[in-house]
Computed example of a mutant assay.
Amino acid sequence: MRDRAAELRAWPSRNQVMTEFRVGAPKAKAALAALREAGFDPTNPTATAVVPVLHAVPDLADHAAPSDSPDETDATDGTGTSDVPASPDAQDVPAAASSPVSPVADPGARRPRVPRWPLLLIAAGAFVSIWGGWVGLGELTGFGPIRLLPGIWDEFVINSAITLPIGVEAYAAFAMWAWLAPTSAGVSRTARRFARWSAIGALALGAAGQIAYHLMVAAGVSHAPWPITAFVACLPVVVLGCGAALAHLIHRPGETV
C-alpha cells in the first residue's frame, strides 16, 4: 500500500484500499493510520524513512463489499448508515448484543394444581354402585360362583359376575386415557379415534346395564329375559377384543396429534 500511495502522490481512500487489497474496512483504516504514524508522506515518498512491516489487524468484516465512494467519508449516506455491508460474522455480533433477553422461568416455581382427592371420593361412590349393579345383573343372567380350577383346586371358587364390572369399566377408563392422552404419549390418530368411540360406547353400555338391573329389581324379576342374558354373556368377549385392538393400535407407529 505504501508503493501505491507513492505512485498516486496522495493518500488513497479507505474504499480504494479495500478494493485494491481486498481487505475489510477496519484493516484498511488501520493500515492508513499506521502509515501516517510512521511519517510517510505520499507527496514526497523519497524523503520518508523505511516503514516497518504492518501487522494484520483482526477484522470481523474481511469479506465486506467496498463502496464506490471516492473517499472514506463517503462510506456513509449522510444519515449515519454505512453503505458497506458487513460480513455475516460482523452482523451477528451487534444482533446478539442488542437482542432482548427473554425472561427465565424460576425452576423452583410450580403451577397451582387442582387437588385430586375429590376424585377419590367420586370414584369410591361410583365403584360401589357400579360394582353392585354389574354383579347383580350378572347373577340375573346366569353368572355366579364357579370352580375355577376343577380337579386341581376344587376349593378355589370365584363368582364370575365380577368379570362384568372389571372388564367393562376398566376398558372404559383405558380407552378414555388413550383418547385424551397428551401428544407426547405417541398415540396415533387411528388409535385416538378408536379409543374415543369405544370409550363412549363402553360408558353408554355401562349406563344401560345399570338401568336394566335396577328396572328388573324394581319389577321383582328373578331371571333376566333371554335377549339381555345373551347380550350380557357376550360382554367379556367384546371387551377382550376391544382391549386387544386398542393396545395394538397404540403401539403401532402412526401420525400423532
Rank of each mutant, 00 (worst) to 15 (best):
V239E: 04
A38K: 02
T19R: 12
R116I: 10
A208S: 09
I200N: 12
V57G: 03
I152C: 07
A61F: 11
P118F: 06
G108K: 10
P52D: 04
G186D: 01
M18P: 00
S188R: 08
P100E: 14
A47K: 12
S67L: 07
A5R: 02
V84S: 06
G133H: 03
V168Y: 00
G151R: 05
A219C: 05
A65S: 11
E255D: 15
G136Q: 03
E37M: 11
P145G: 02
E155H: 10
T76I: 08
G254H: 04
T19Q: 14
D68Q: 10
V237F: 14
G241S: 15
H214R: 12
A212S: 09
R2E: 10
R22A: 14
T141A: 04
T19A: 15
V157G: 04
V221G: 00
A95D: 15
T43Y: 09
P118K: 05
D77S: 07
R111D: 13
I211G: 05
S222W: 01
H55L: 14
V237Y: 13
L240M: 08
A10N: 12
M216A: 03
A207L: 14
G125R: 04
R110S: 14
T141F: 01
L235I: 15
P100G: 13
F194P: 03
P26W: 08
A10C: 11
P112G: 03
A38T: 02
P88K: 06
G151I: 01
L140R: 01
I122G: 14
A195S: 09
P88F: 05
L54A: 12
A33R: 09
A30K: 09
W226D: 15
L180Q: 15
H251C: 10
W131P: 00
R252D: 05
V23G: 05
A207R: 06
R116Q: 10
A25Q: 08
G125Y: 03
R22I: 08
V57R: 10
A90Y: 05
A247F: 13
D71Q: 09
G80L: 01
I152R: 11
E7S: 14
D154H: 02
R14F: 13
I166G: 08
P103Y: 12
T183A: 13
M216F: 04
A202N: 06
A38D: 01
H251F: 13
S160V: 02
G201R: 12
W177R: 09
V84P: 01
P66T: 03
L215H: 07
D106R: 00
N15Q: 14
A185T: 08
W131I: 00
T19G: 05
G125S: 11
I162H: 08
R196N: 12
L137T: 02
V53H: 11
F194E: 11
A181N: 06
A161N: 01
R116S: 09
R196Y: 10
T73M: 13
L140S: 01
G243Y: 02
L119R: 12
